[in-house]
Design a protein around this nucleic acid. Sequence first.
DNA 1: GTCTATACTCTGATAGAC
DNA 2: GTCTATCAGAGTATAGAC
Lengths: 212, 212
Amino acid sequence: MAQRGSYAKGVAKREEILERALDVIAREGYRGASVKEIADAVGLSQAGLLHYFDSKEQLFTEIIRKRDEHDHVDFSVSDGAAGREGLLRVIAHNAQVPGLVELFSRLSVEAADPAHPAHDYFLERSRGLREGIAAATASSLPGGIDPDTLARIVQAVVDGLQLQWLIDPSVDMVGTLEVLLDALSSMNTPTGALDEALDGVLDDQRSAATDA
Amino acid sequence: MAQRGSYAKGVAKREEILERALDVIAREGYRGASVKEIADAVGLSQAGLLHYFDSKEQLFTEIIRKRDEHDHVDFSVSDGAAGREGLLRVIAHNAQVPGLVELFSRLSVEAADPAHPAHDYFLERSRGLREGIAAATASSLPGGIDPDTLARIVQAVVDGLQLQWLIDPSVDMVGTLEVLLDALSSMNTPTGALDEALDGVLDDQRSAATDA
DNA sequence: GTCTATACTCTGATAGAC
DNA sequence: GTCTATCAGAGTATAGAC
């Protein structure tokens, strides 16, 4: 079902466009990319590209959504090592694709407007992240930090480090994040509840990504 | 000296423009503010406003620089309670002025381009922040974190929380930051070296702001 | 489904009068 | 120093042919 001729083709083409756009931005960077530039890159005219998306804002929102899907597949599930290590691998990968980081950061700000298509997506993404940590930690953070707050802190550090790194690429995002995670886990529980907590994170991110 | 007729007036007017622009953005928010909108707000034509600034980018960069000056005066020096409390007060104030936070976040991303006028300013600002913490802590972080890394983490959390708050204003920036600072200081030294460390932060930020 | 062509809006920037 | 007027350009979105 749900594969009736032109509809299915439209969806497939749409996915193909997103894959290509993602690849181009990752390899060539985001230099204030316009719809026309993306169109050229994927081999369509500007009008042809917008046939598949309502607007530029929606197009870029979908590109970021697609990236989240990739991150989950590539860094969390493939070898079974999710959680802390998965998160660190995502960050390490980000350091290879400044264009995607810039697009993400830009959207993060523009999505402040509740009318922006990425607004709800970011809300949902953030909520999934927090719930993942909260659920995984449950009652296992003895003298520690509220799981919800912990999640916000980790998310904030990741996003903030990206901003610093965009301006100064010599910033070591992975190393800095590791220092923080080490510090926080050492005070939560001797058995490293934080690490376990993070195991649920990316799974929930995936859910958020495909749901919304 | 340095007060020769038209030159002095030009400088004074420039400062007045920045003050006004700052006030307007703080009160009415930043809704993709254009040069024309700022011009209207300060009672000049667009051309009249650009007479004082080379470009839109420079104008906005100066506005942010002016804000840093205000933050320092209003929240760090006035009552002698600098450091941790000063930082928390700045964040609490930020929660009252979404327009300024949005402008700052937007510039943070756009300044990734080395040609952007705010690029060097952000580099300098960040450097001053780190040096402040490093100098204040010196050799007083026993089993703790490298001062430079600590500074990056604190800065990242502040910036990242602002991104979250822009999308969801219910986010408690101050409370979340306090949790992190409490956690970090409890593990550094029994006497709270982190708090002392932060005492040097905003002073250095001022230096950076006026230098560059 | 895709393209060409175009319309329209904004915005930043400049020239030149006063 | 400030304004009016204007320009040039980018960029999105739409109309309509094929």
